[in-house]
């Protein structure tokens, strides 16, 4: 079993003096991956909303009588 290489959390965050470089690299990694995970979700929500609105509009239009029907009424 591999053992923890640092003496406590403070030592872990210090990364043997390379904290700035290591954590900057990992921060950028997480930002890009997080964006890739969130952006398609927002996009999906946007598409569904748009298509729902379109569907509702079409259903409304279907119940409105046409010019011809109104003249015959």
């Amino acid at each position: 079993m591999p053992k923890f290489q640092f003496d406590g959390l403070a030592d872990f965050f210090a990364m043997g003096g390379y904290a700035f470089y290591v954590w900057l690299a990992y921060a950028f990694f997480f930002v890009v991956m997080g964006w890739n995970l969130i952006q398609p979700r927002l996009e999906r929500r946007r598409i569904l909303k748009l298509l729902q609105a379109r569907q509702a509009r079409e259903e409304r239009n279907a119940t409105v009588p046409t010019q011809e029907e109104r003249e015959h009424a």
């Binding site: 923890f4 290489q5 990364m15 470089y21 290591v22 690299a25």
Partner: peptide, 22 residues
């Protein structure tokens, strides 16, 4: 594992841990 449990590199110390994403 890479950030906390892998041993440090004999030349680059803990800095090499960037390898796990690079």
């Amino acid at each position: 594992w890479g950030l906390g449990f892998a041993p440090p590199d004999y030349q680059m110390g803990d800095n090499y841990r960037i390898i796990y994403i690079h």
